[in-house]
Design a protein around this nucleic acid. Structure first.
Length: 297
DNA sequence: ATGACGTCTCGTCAACCTCC
DNA sequence: GGAGGTTGACGAGACGTCAT
């Protein structure tokens, strides 16, 4: 990030923290939520989460660094060190307090859909970035399944052919899409790499050589054979890196989705507790009125 | 129209965590 | 201890808003 960008980022964080401070300090005075936010705070602080003052200090230091031309990203990293996982916090909170839903781990329903296995016994199953499943059965049969669809309707059959002029070492399979708009080609080299190129109206799937550069939104898996030459090793390293990046990309998306869920959960909880608190205050006032008779003159 | 600014989203890196 | 997952931090780009 440029200096400008980084300052912008810090400013953004500052705003977020101020918002948080407002919610914690003034949002629910004297309520259960206050003690809970204190609980959250207590869990957060021990791992040196940056305080408002620290962030301000960073921003100011950045200004001075700008004039001196010094970059201290290392220092900044030290100060802005990790806090405990928000999911961990929420789950611990939920075990303490009833009514706080846990953020779910990935369950079986997000795993291999039953209708994929129902069609054939796949030897390899891959999930694309769009959530579709590609199953390669024994004999090379490929099945594509959309999780949202119901049962067999989401499955699209692929049949192997050897027509056309495939790339070297590749076999073309025809894609018998249900839309009947035509067929799409799948390239199947010896090593198994399934690729979905996210282009066009219809997703394109490819089974590529591991060394080929992958487009964005691609899922691939490979069965590494014996590697000997430095070039093969380099290709393997590249493939592994691509795979790691792709997985991390998906993980980051999932993480952000969960984080949004977490924030929504906290916001709704704040709303509930605010209502609760209001009711309790009203009840207290009523009881006060009952217990202390008016001293009329 | 244009530049400045704020906000959001995404990909990536790296530290940390968990599981085997 | 290593592999793989999780997530905070960073950098960049897209987009909207506002003042000029």
């Amino acid at each position: 990030m440029s200096k400008c960008g980084r300052k912008k980022y810090i400013k953004t964080n500052l705003r977020q923290m101020e918002t948080l401070d407002c919610q914690q300090d003034g949002g629910v005075p004297g309520s259960v939520a206050e003690s809970e936010s204190a609980h959250l705070q207590a869990q957060t602080d021990p791992n040196s989460a940056p305080t408002l003052a620290q962030v301000v200090a960073i921003a100011e230091a950045d200004d001075s660094a700008e004039s001196e031309g010094v970059t201290d990203s290392q220092k900044r990293r030290e100060i802005l060190s990790r806090r405990p996982s928000y999911r961990k916090i929420l789950n611990e909170l939920s075990s303490d307090v009833a009514g706080v839903p846990k953020i779910e781990e990935k369950s079986e329903e997000e795993g291999v859909p039953p209708h994929v296995a129902a069609m054939a016994v796949p030897t390899s199953i891959y999930q694309t970035s769009t959530g579709q499943y590609i199953a390669i059965a024994q004999g090379g049969a490929i099945q594509i399944s959309t999780p949202g669809s119901d049962g067999v309707q989401g499955l699209q059959a692929l049949t192997m052919t050897n027509s056309g002029a495939p790339p070297p070492g590749a076999t073309i399979v025809q894609y018998a899409a249900q839309s009947a708009d035509g067929t799409q080609q799948f390239f199947v080299p010896g090593s198994q790499v399934v690729v979905q190129a996210a282009t066009g109206d219809m997703p394109t799937y490819q089974i590529r050589a591991p060394a080929t550069a992958l487009p964005q939104g691609v899922v691939m898996a490979a069965s590494p054979g014996s590697l000997h030459s430095p070039q093969q090793l380099a290709e393997e390293a590249t493939r592994k890196r691509e795979l790691r990046l792709m997985k991390n990309r998906e993980a980051a998306k999932e993480c952000r989705r969960r984080k949004k869920e977490y924030v929504k959960c906290l916001e709704s909880r704040v709303a509930v507790l605010e209502v609760q608190n209001k009711k309790l205050i009203e009840e207290l006032e009523t009881l006060k009125d009952i217990c202390s008779p008016k001293t009329d003159v």
